[in-house]
Amino acid sequence: MKNINFRMKQKMNEVFSIEPNDLGTGYLTSFFKKTTSYLKTMPFIYVIPFTFFISIFMYFVLGRFLIKLVTILQYGF
């Protein structure tokens, strides 16, 4: 029982180690919390489709420059 209490206290300290974010206005704070909640667990589920869409968009906007950019990036390591 003592052990469970200790672990519970430890977990509570871990969870409340930082104060919740407050962006000034209620609307902004709730928008921020809603948006970031998707990124807290399994962010790649949202990130990969988003970046794929951005890449396709960049290809249509930049055209051949995108291919040149990839060549430059490949020399970047």
């Binding site: 962010p43 790649f44 990969i48 970046t51 890449s55 290809y59 995108l66 291919i67 990839v70």
Partner: peptide
Amino acid sequence: RTFSLLGKGFSIFFVTYSLSLFIW
């Protein structure tokens, strides 16, 4: 990278991959 279909496909893949890691 070349301007062939495969080159374009790889470029889109590479940008997607790099952007995903950058956001992460």
